[in-house]
């Protein structure tokens, strides 16, 4: 019996500093066979262990077809991610995964997709945008909405510009606080939803960000006639085991680490927004 608690070692091949507090580690399993058989889908995550510091859940952001490596984009928010930020190429980490259910890329095939991100650290949604850009003919119109608190916070700006130049791709940016160079709008990302001409019946929505932002987005989407089962989002909870066992991440009967982190609104509609649940 394999021990799902036990990490496997992976080597850092590359380290990219994305912003002052965000970095990407490009990794491969030390065991070549483990790397060969490693399969994941956008929105899934690994538990990443730093020697002695501890273990944290991190979304896998590269394309599932990249068979020789996998990428984790990490923001420094606590003790473990701080320790990880100091790792260099050649260093090793422990990896358990992939865990959870990713984005409904099969359901989304042939549809228009609205992708709404609030704030930073939304690697889960970036991974699915990359996925769709690489398989452009499988999806209809893409609306990419990104909101940040301060316009200087936005990372991967060239990426957004590149996406915007693609046919049938609509990129809208919003920041609460803006500087003069900002080309996006001022305000909240959810306010952008009302400006869209969404074809309901054809549109599937994918959301990532703080729960209040996602709740506001869901309300807007429902007003526009998007059905509950076409609204998907990635939830964040205290995830420690990754296998629906340690109990911390439960929302009602769902384990976020195993049944999510990507959920359909119709699965959690009754419990979303209940304070402290």
């Amino acid at each position: 019996m394999s021990d799902l608690h036990l990490p496997r070692t992976a080597i850092i091949d590359e380290r990219i500093q994305e912003s002052p507090t965000i970095f990407t580690l490009r990794l491969r399993f030390e065991d070549a066979t483990a790397q060969e058989v490693f399969e994941f889908s956008p929105g899934q995550f690994n538990m990443v262990t730093h020697f002695a510091a501890g273990e944290i859940p991190i979304s896998i952001v590269n394309d599932p077809k990249d068979s020789h490596y996998f990428d984790h984009t990490i923001r420094v928010v606590g003790r473990v991610s701080e320790a990880m930020s100091k790792l260099q190429p050649g260093d090793r980490v422990g990896i358990r995964g992939p865990f959870g259910r990713g984005w409904p890329v099969v359901d989304a095939s042939g549809r228009d997709v609205l992708l709404v991100t609030g704030g930073l650290g939304c690697a889960p949604l970036v991974s699915v945008i990359h996925y769709m850009m690489k398989r452009r003919n499988q999806f209809g119109h893409l609306h990419i909405l990104q909101g940040v608190k301060h316009s200087n916070d936005l990372i991967w700006r060239e990426q957004y510009d590149a996406w915007a130049r693609e046919p049938d791709v609509n990129v809208l940016l919003a920041a609460d606080v803006v500087t003069r160079e900002w080309h996006g709008q001022q305000g909240m990302v959810t306010e952008l939803i009302g400006q869209l001409n969404l074809r309901h019946g054809r549109t599937i929505a994918m959301l990532c960000g703080p729960e209040v932002m996602m709740l506001a987005a869901i309300a807007n989407l429902r007003d526009l006639g998007i059905a509950d089962h076409q609204i998907w989002f990635s939830m964040e909870r205290n995830m420690q085991c990754g296998i629906g066992q340690c109990g911390h991440c439960q929302i009602g009967a769902k384990y976020v680490c195993r049944d999510g982190p990507v959920f359909c609104y119709s699965e959690l509609a009754d419990l979303m927004g209940a304070k402290g649940f």
Binding site: E236, N238, Q250, A253, G276
Partner: peptide
């Protein structure tokens, strides 16, 4: 138990008791 960094999903005893009872008797 419900910590995400500095934020706690269940920040008071009400939400913790509610978590325990609803899980035990309904979620299960």
């Amino acid at each position: 138990h419900s910590s995400m960094g500095a934020f706690k999903v269940r920040g008071n005893i009400l939400s913790r008791y509610r978590q325990w009872l609803t899980h035990k008797l309904a979620g299960w």
